[in-house]
Nucleic acid binder design. Structure first.
Length: 404
DNA sequence: TCTGGGGTCCTAGGACCC
DNA sequence: TCTGGGGTCCTAGGACCC
């Protein structure tokens, strides 16, 4: 039996949700109706466009470009900052509404969900349900969504990306040639900025061109990715709507520094601050890490990463920091101007599935106790209420940001 | 005051082993 | 005693997503 899939995509999510918050606080203008964006902080060198209003889009402003450049396109542009915790609340409201229709929901991101309605339609038509959901979200939650309707996730997602906002679109397999093949390859999911020019040089310009290209030729040139792009261009996607909440496979924090720094002692302090945040999150998940990874971005935007496997899985800040620090020192044998520092842990495993014997030695126990004391204080009074020696300076230098 | 931050997955090369 | 081949693990880098 054919699957009945919906893709729900919040229109300009961060901007819409911020607009609602501002109206609640008594603002006279709805920023959805003026040229406005949600942006990072230019003074902290993170000034990029995170979301834009339709009016801002009319000026040619695109997500990801610098606020500086956006302002050049539209001098009257209004810039607002976002609040991630608020966005999470709106995301949850949407999710709870969708749960009234099916429990087979995949939360693809904070503002996108896939719904498998196959066993929940009774005698209703899928498209009618889509219109009903769209209307209810608007009336009950106050923002608009686009909904894509089809038989698999890829086609539903492509459909929700058609004309915006506040629209329902179908993209059934029979509609692929008329609705999808005329689009440029860059519109296809999983075709990014590096691949598009390569396809262009092969005279593959539209999704239709790609669909009709010999699959083996694509595999030869692009490997697995070639196979995937050919299947997507032909509307083939057998992946399931995954409603399980997946445990993370890695956890990382990174920060762009207010100014480039080259002094290794200062970088160490940043690494410590980031490690504390990462390890805290790791412990909150009740997981242990097997790999520590450090990222440095130079002033010339060159990204360097080093990683190293630990002797045994850990969630100890001290152990992770020791490894991260040694990796950084390895990377900075030659002096470099550093713009961004990142720490992440990978190879995560659940704590209880590991032999507890690994923690039997006295030293680990002490470290774990210290960490859990710090965690409980942090939990009670908010993150960053406890700092270790040497961190105060960094806290002044690097204020950890909300994570997206 | 030009270019975020958090993820997942894939690839290629080297080390090491049989 | 001058050159194979397969397999696994580890690491660095890159592509893509929101």
């Amino acid at each position: 039996m054919e699957r009945q899939i919906l893709h729900i995509d919040v229109n300009n999510a961060f901007l819409s949700w911020t607009a609602i918050e501002l109206l609640k606080k008594g603002s006279k203008i709805d920023i959805r109706t003026i040229p406005a964006i949600i942006g990072g902080d230019e003074t902290r060198r993170s000034g990029i466009v995170l979301a834009k209003s339709m009016k801002a889009k009319e000026f040619g402003i695109v997500t990801g470009e610098t606020i500086y450049s956006a302002k050049q396109k539209c001098p009257s542009l209004q810039v607002f900052q976002g609040t991630y915790s608020k966005y999470k609340e709106y995301s949850n409201k949407l999710y709870n509404l969708l749960l009234e229709y099916t429990d087979k929901i995949e939360r693809y991101s904070i503002d996108e969900c896939f719904l498998d309605m196959t066993n929940y339609l009774m005698n209703a038509k899928l498209i009618d349900k889509a219109y009903e959901i769209k209307r209810r979200v608007k009336e009950e939650l106050g923002f608009t969504v686009n909904i894509g309707v089809s038989n698999n996730k890829l086609l539903a997602k492509m459909a929700s990306d058609f004309k915006k906002p506040d629209m329902v679109h179908t993209l059934y397999p029979s509609e692929i040639p008329s609705k999808m093949w005329n689009l440029p390859v860059s519109d296809l999911f999983m075709l990014g900025r590096k691949t598009v020019p390569k396809l262009d040089s092969m005279r593959i310009k539209t999704i239709g061109d790609l669909a009709k290209t010999d699959k083996l030729k694509l595999i030869k040139k692009f490997g697995k990715h070639g196979s995937l792009m050919w299947e997507y261009a032909n509307g083939i996607d057998n992946s399931e709507v995954n409603s399980k909440v997946e445990k993370p496979k890695g956890i990382g924090n990174s920060t762009t520094l207010p100014v480039d720094i080259s002094e290794i002692e200062k970088i160490d302090e940043v690494v410590l601050a980031l490690t504390e945040h990462v390890a805290y999150r790791l412990r909150k998940y009740g997981m242990l890490a097997n790999v520590v990874n450090v990222q440095l971005r130079t002033n010339e935007f060159k990204d360097l990463t080093h990683q190293s496997k630990l002797n045994s899985a850990t969630c100890s800040t001290k152990v992770i920091y020791a490894k991260a620090k040694s990796l950084v020192h390895e990377m900075l044998k030659e002096k470099k101007q550093i713009r961004l520092v990142g720490v992440r842990v990978d190879g995560l495993v659940e704590k209880d599935e590991l032999q507890m014997s690994l923690f039997s030695n006295e030293n680990s126990e002490k470290l774990e106790k210290l960490d859990s004391v710090l965690d409980s204080i942090n939990q009670k009074y908010g993150y960053n209420s406890v700092t270790r020696a040497g961190k105060m300076e960094v806290e002044k230098l690097v204020k950890l940001k909300d994570s997206q």
